[in-house]
């Protein structure tokens, strides 16, 4: 537990010291909001502000995942610190769990950034749901994205082309999350993939919470997210074993 906290605290420092990361959590949300605003500004429906907010937020979350699970890890690989983390008495997944959570906590600030822009710069009214709903949703986002991000970290840890693939995945993920078009319009096999993405459920959930009368406890999206979190949790355990095997048996960790 203490390790998790130390890992978390130092990750805050490291991330914030990187201008790329400050860009991801502050500038990027602003740019995405502006771009989507202009693309959608002819759209004639009442809650365009909320629509913008949901889409931009999910795009930002994905950017932060890309950042935390991949470019950060690649960096660790390049600095050669994976070995000394791996060979320490602490379980690898706790160490990297701390790092991922730290990045996500920072990344969730981008929600605030896009909210402020939409509400005050573009003057589109967003009616926030009550505090409890917000906290619940925040918590759900945090755990579901932590597990996804950690899962992806493992997946790409020993992959040389990690950065390449994750960049390539950006727009497909947006599409599959239902940002540009309704998921029902996609072919069935793509729909199945989209069920496996927390972003799909988050888009649904975020749309729902702006309906004041909606009780999120009855939302299928909440349960979808919980189930996915559990699934990715199992995935992490499996991946951890695979990774240990790859390092110890196949000798794929290039310590030297």
């Amino acid at each position: 537990m203490r390790v998790l906290l130390t890992s978390l605290r130092l990750q805050f420092k490291q991330s914030l010291s990187r201008s790329t990361y400050r860009f991801v959590i502050i500038i990027q949300p602003i740019l995405n909001t502006i771009l989507l605003y202009f693309i959608l500004s002819n759209k004639n429906f009442v809650n365009v502000g909320e629509y913008l907010f949901v889409n931009v937020s999910v795009m930002n979350l994905w950017s932060s995942i890309v950042f935390s699970s991949l470019s950060d890890l690649t960096r660790e690989k390049r600095m050669g610190v994976l070995g000394s983390n791996f060979a320490s008495p602490v379980k690898f997944q706790w160490i990297y769990g701390g790092k991922v959570i730290a990045n996500l906590i920072l990344a969730l600030w981008s929600f605030a950034v896009s909210y402020l822009i939409i509400q005050y710069v573009f003057d589109l009214n967003i009616v926030l749901p009550n505090v409890y709903t917000l906290i619940t949703v925040y918590f759900l986002l945090l755990i579901s994205f932590t597990t996804l991000s950690l899962f992806l970290s493992y997946f790409f840890l020993l992959n040389r082309q990690a950065i390449f693939w994750i960049n390539v995945l950006e727009y497909p993920i947006y599409l599959l999350s239902g940002i540009a078009t309704s998921i029902q319009k996609l072919p069935w096999f793509l729909q199945i993939i989209s069920w496996l993405l927390p972003t799909k459920w988050i888009v649904g959930l975020l749309h729902q919470i702006f309906n004041a009368k909606y009780n999120i406890l009855t939302s299928a999206n909440v349960y979808g997210l919980l189930i996915l979190t559990a699934l990715y949790g199992i995935g992490i355990i499996v991946m951890n074993n695979i990774m240990e095997r790859k390092i110890l048996v196949e000798g794929q960790l290039e310590v030297y």
Partner: peptide, 17 residues
């Protein structure tokens, strides 16, 4: 593939108008 999906994404978004 990647650029095309990007194009599809924006085209779908734009065509919402």
């Amino acid at each position: 593939v990647q650029p095309m999906i990007q194009v599809i994404f924006f085209v779908l978004l734009i065509s919402k108008n």
